[in-house]
Design a protein around this nucleic acid. Structure first.
Lengths: 188, 188
DNA sequence: CGTATTTCTTAATCTGGATTAAGGAGATTC
DNA sequence: GAATCTCCTTAATCCAGATTAAGAAATACG
């Protein structure tokens, strides 16, 4: 699916408006472990993944990585706290695979909203979708045991699970890699 | 703070635009335990709390209440999954105190967006704020022990904590009331 | 009032998942 | 093809917080 199709799922835009939209985007490429956003930097952009996979994470007090989100093709990712508060990011956004993104800086976002008001609507809808995904995550956290969360996660994301190391899935689910091993051997 | 002031924190509106905004709202009152949204009903509104306090919760498989959100004065609350998906709600929104809200139905929201395009911007910003609050919640869940989460919660919400029973705080934090008692006696 | 309902506390016991420690196995690199 | 990473597994032990079971306090209410 192209970005054009993606946008049209939420608001109707024609080719001309799409050209305008794209004129504010900048294509960027990252190798695995390269960072779209570094710890302590102010996040000034929203990133749309066109190819590859990234993770958003930080380090706990004990120095362990804690992954909050993955993003793959056709997802937006940003540190919204840093972006909207113009504050130093407490998170890192980092490529897992060779990744291509379309970067929309906040300055471009604001002028785009002025030139094409339906962009405001587009991002209102995207934020709602993003919020709902996070709310669902919270429901799993509170309602399911870690084992059920894991089994559910691999069932619903079987193709994605192939793409990232198991210890990252463990971090995302808030469990240890050892515990994932335990579950796997238990379920034959 | 009035709704007029609340809106002006995010987008500049004049008195005339505010009148238009308000013409789409409907004032509603609820007694404690009355429901703004019932389980299985399709959520068609966003609610702005002007007075009182509500909770959004569901029942776990074991039949226990799991609270996901509280909302007090000057917060919006809705079941966004049900609202945007026009699907039966898996949640309940219920008054804890005698509560007054301004109800904005989805139909009114849509016409309001057409009449006053900056409403789209307003809700885009509100959704970002709402998302950031939830992301912060997730960070606490993954980074802090239950004890630290509780101590942090009562420190940052000391006035709110007076307003709701302790077992609801326990549910919101995902712990048992017994465990809260334990923490309280431990911290003299 | 007194009775009932709701909320909170204490304490013993139990358990899901962490921690620790060791080793194995597949890639990469030289 | 040996050395070095990176990732995964197994198993013993441990612990934060749940569960269970009683009561004790508040609060509401006829």
């Amino acid at each position: 699916m192209s970005l054009f199709d993606y946008i049209n799922r939420y608001v109707a835009i024609d080719r001309e408006e799409y050209e305008l939209f794209c004129s504010h985007l900048r294509l960027r490429s990252y190798l695995p472990k390269e960072r779209l956003l570094d710890l302590g930097k102010i996040c000034i952009s929203r990133f749309f993944i066109t190819k590859g996979c990234v993770r958003l994470y930080n380090y706990t007090e004990e120095g362990k990585e804690q992954i909050y989100h993955f993003a793959i093709e056709n997802w937006w990712i940003s540190d919204y706290a840093s972006l909207t508060g113009r504050s130093p990011s407490k998170q890192i956004i980092e490529a897992i695979e060779p990744t291509e993104v379309l970067e929309l800086t906040n300055a471009d976002f604001e002028s785009l909203c002025r030139e094409l008001p339906k962009v405001e609507r587009l991002f209102r809808i995207i934020m709602e979708k993003t919020y709902i995904a996070l709310q669902n995550r919270l429901e799993f956290l509170f309602n399911l045991t870690s084992e059920k969360q894991y089994l559910n996660f691999i069932k619903r994301n079987s193709s994605f699970v192939q793409r990232v190391p198991q210890y990252m899935i463990a971090s995302y689910l808030g469990v240890t890699p050892e515990f994932i091993s335990k579950i796997k051997s238990k379920n034959q």
